[in-house]
Amino acid sequence: MNTKNIKIDLANATGEEMHPMISEAFPYRFRRMHFNPINGFSVEWHWHREVELFYITEGILEYQTPEGVYQFPAGTGGLVNAGILHRTKSGNAPDQTLQNIHIFQTDFLCNDKNSLFYQKYIEPVLTSGIDIYHFQGGTRNTKKILDRLQKSFHLNEDDFLYEMKLRQNLEEIFALCTSAEFQPRDATPGMTKMDANLKTMMFYVQENYSEKIAVSDIANAAALSERECYRLFQRFVKTSPANYLKQVRLEHAKNMLAHTDLSFTDIAMQCNLGESSYFGLQIKKETGMTPTEYRKRHRS
């Protein structure tokens, strides 16, 4: 299986995905994601201030957040709330998974936080405590949402009323998300602060994986004790900070094996995975293949 990650634009040290195409005049962006052997089958941990509203047209896509892991097969969709740390991975590899996404600031729907519209239909979604809304199943409101979602992706950008029709569809989806079917839940006490600390530590690892770093360095990045660092990783990422660091290094190493001609020694050095012999053992343990076999498999 190709484990190449799809690249996105991140702000260094924060892990925030940047959307330079989104403007104040039109705070919206359409994106079509192709998860396949050429582009890759996963997008690593990131977050963004915008809402992400998506529909799966082919394959299966898995979303992971600190709250859990969710699968979305073709014909379903979801809404990733603003500021939620998440990663995605195709559940359909080596076959293709296709995803259509609306990425937008809620200002696109309503920029007056004192208005009745914002307080009745926008704010309840943003403050619901729900990390990802799931649009799958046969309930009436879910069917309506999926219908609006599909229609919104088939609008013609060249139509005179395109922006108005798009906003109308997104407004209706937000309004339907406030129905009793999608029950808000109490946010985990202190989750906002914990989420910020977790983001800081995870992206410290992603920025510094090639360096010799210890758990104490990861904890210091968020001004936390090692004990609190361990607790946050175990609770929300379901692994230790040391294992997370190792996994990040291995993912980069596998990408280099598949997509560069660097020697095994150079890859091991750049990913801080020790001597080439130890590196070979780790790749074998991770993939069931030697580095040579892995490179050959992903070049064929």
Rank of each mutant, 00 (worst) to 15 (best):
Q282R: 13
R235K: 13
K151M: 05
E62N: 08
G288T: 01
D261S: 04
G190C: 10
A253D: 02
W45V: 09
R297T: 04
V248M: 00
L257Y: 06
L166A: 04
I8D: 04
L126Q: 05
G190T: 06
I103D: 02
T88I: 11
I8F: 13
L149M: 08
G78V: 01
M33F: 10
D9P: 11
H19I: 10
M21P: 08
S216Q: 14
F35M: 07
A221D: 01
L98Y: 00
P66R: 00
F117R: 14
K193C: 10
M18Y: 02
P37V: 08
Y55A: 00
T292M: 04
H154D: 12
G138C: 07
Q119K: 11
D9E: 13
I84M: 14
Q105H: 11
L109D: 08
I122P: 03
V205P: 06
E44L: 13
T142V: 09
L116R: 15
P66I: 11
D186A: 11
Y278M: 14
T178N: 01
Y118N: 06
V215F: 14
P291Y: 06
I38L: 05
L146C: 12
V215I: 11
I56H: 09
M33T: 10
P66G: 02
K284E: 02
G137Q: 05
H134I: 01
Q64M: 14
R148Y: 13
V215H: 09
Q150F: 00
H298T: 06
P37M: 08
L155S: 07
T88S: 05
W45G: 10
I60K: 01
T260Y: 03
H298R: 00
K7R: 15
Q183Y: 02
L109C: 09
F117C: 02
T76D: 00
R231Q: 12
F135N: 07
G77W: 07
P124S: 10
W47T: 02
I130V: 13
D112T: 09
H134R: 12
G83N: 14
M33S: 09
M256E: 05
P27C: 09
S152Q: 05
M194L: 10
D266Y: 06
A180L: 05
A74P: 02
Y28V: 08
A175C: 12
E24C: 08
T260E: 06
E123M: 08
A13G: 02
